[in-house]
């Protein structure tokens, strides 16, 4: 028994190592497939319909949270008749007909003890949306992972660079 363990000990260690590396790689590297209920095309809406961010994310300039659009905002343009022949639009129409909210998944979020305000950054700080959210106007797929991770290190890096306050109480409460 002892010899057996000795013989295969190295093998065991190596295989454990390989497996853990594989798992780690799979967990970090793999792109999660589309987790949103509708394959919303940002590029299409921005380029051909000439919408801007605040047309749909209506509170981005005036409130702490930008908000994920309510279905009533979609309804302003879309009605029972499909505008295109995209199958995704049919899904939307189904939500509209059934008067249900679209179960969008929230991608960008900060923990409970952090106060993040969009209007502070967009209206007062005059940052462009792309600073944190990346080039949304070129996204044909819906967002499924954050372009920029809202972690404290990342926040502080930018605050350092722009010489904005680093006072704990200005974000933590």
């Amino acid at each position: 028994m002892r010899d057996l363990i000795k013989k295969y000990f190295k093998l065991l260690i190596i295989s454990l190592f390989v497996i853990s590396v594989l798992i780690f790689w799979a967990a970090s590297g793999a792109n999660p497939t589309n987790i949103q209920p509708i394959a919303y095309n940002h590029k299409l809406h921005i380029e051909s319909v000439e919408l801007i961010c605040s047309d749909c994310h209506i509170y981005v300039e005036s409130m702490p949270s930008a908000t994920i659009p309510n279905i009533s905002i979609c309804e302003e343009c879309h009605s029972d008749d499909p505008i295109t022949d995209s199958p995704e639009e049919l899904k939307l129409i189904k939500y509209i007909v059934e008067e249900e909210q679209i179960p969008w998944q929230q991608i960008y979020s900060v923990p409970d003890h952090v106060y993040f305000s969009h209007r502070r950054h967009v209206s007062i700080g005059e940052l462009d949306c792309s600073e944190c959210h990346g080039h949304v106007e070129e996204m044909t797929e819906p967002i499924s992972y954050p372009a920029w991770l809202p972690s404290m290190d990342n926040c502080i890096a930018c605050h350092n660079e722009l010489k904005i306050t680093k006072d704990c109480l200005s974000c933590h409460m």
């Binding site: 005036s62 702490p64 305000s117 209007r119 502070r120 007062i124 109480l169 409460m173």
Partner: peptide, 17 residues
């Protein structure tokens, strides 16, 4: 007690707006 510092954040933001 934080002197309700969370209120200060909002007050400051309103004033800045």
């Amino acid at each position: 007690c934080s002197f309700c510092a969370h209120r200060l954040i909002k007050v400051k933001e309103n004033a800045d707006m």
